[in-house]
Design a protein around this nucleic acid. Structure first.
Ligand code: FES
Ligand code: FES
Lengths: 157, 157
DNA sequence: TCTATTTTCGACAATTTTATCGGAAATAGA
DNA sequence: TCTATTTCCGATAAAATTGTCGAAAATAGA
């Protein structure tokens, strides 16, 4: 008889929570911006299922990096311009929040990923990592927002 | 003029540190086990570049799950049997330490990855995730140990 | 049996990530 | 100018991961 003892870590996901929240918030704001509407943080977190103050911070960071507009005061909120929506790629959101070690760094944590002196997993990782990078680079915010608008995809479960 | 503000998280790698250390330690122990030698934790962490007590804990967990043998006392240490070395796949190490959310979970953190009601990134992720799973499933510890033995790959930089 | 060695294990500490709070700053409208 | 609204931002707290310490348990050999 044998069974597995479980003691797995809790947050070893593809992206950090901050990054998941950031991507989903951006997508929701994009859908509303397509209708010309600014959205308040309270509305965003309701649709995305994320903590309010934390999400506000993340959107603030994305605003500093020019990926989203914000306006204070009544009738204020977050907004993504049409040109921003078309030009921003998901990889930009990920880079701001999580950095680029997931596409550039060594999968086994060597200080540098180097094909001349590779880690044992290098040849297995290189292709997957570049496909991930390519996927994030090639998909625009507009594309994902359209998926939500048409009801093909969802932001919360 | 425009520049990027950096505030990226610090540990959003493919695997957790614990998992990186675990994989590298297993590979090193495997190379020595090929020579019929048991290795002490002090030797392991020297070759892997990981913190001693932390690495010992991780190896203890892997031992509980039957992926490695340990023996206390003089001439004791860690050892991987030939049958273990051939049968254990990297995915088993990852599953014990990090769980399986990286190959099974939704990339945007929805409570479940569901093709009927997918998140906006689902179609982009499904292929990459399954390739990662496949890569980790198909590579054996023995294969990676041989890479180290022949000097083609390294464990520390 | 005694000693030296080495893993095991619980407690604890440090660091990072996640999350909350409260008030300042900005804005729109009255 | 005053008020209400909303983002911004620093301080702080909570939780998770990473890392350390010390002593118990097991083992080999004298
Ligand atoms: S050296 Fe490790 S992934 Fe390239
Ligand atoms: S539902 Fe998000 S990856 Fe499948």
């Amino acid at each position: 008889m044998s069974f597995v003892i479980f003691l797995a870590n809790q947050y070893p996901d593809m992206f950090s929570k901050a990054c998941e929240y950031g991507i989903k918030a951006m997508i929701y704001v994009a859908t509303q911006s397509l209708k010309g509407e600014r959205v308040k943080i309270g509305d965003i977190v309701e649709k995305v299922g994320s903590p309010e103050a934390f999400t506000a911070k993340i959107l603030g960071d994305l605003a500093k990096n020019g990926l989203i507009e914000s306006l204070k005061g009544p009738y204020g909120g977050f907004y993504i311009r049409p040109d921003q929506m078309e030009s921003t790629r998901i990889i930009q959101i990920v880079s701001v929040i999580d950095g680029d070690s997931i596409f550039l760094g060594c999968g086994l944590g060597l200080s540098e990923c180097n094909a001349q002196k590779p880690c044992p997993m290098h040849s297995k990782f290189v292709k997957i990592r570049s496909e991930l990078k390519n996927a994030l680079e090639s998909t625009t915010l507009l594309e994902l927002a359209n998926g939500i608008k048409s009801g093909q995809t969802i932001l919360v479960r």
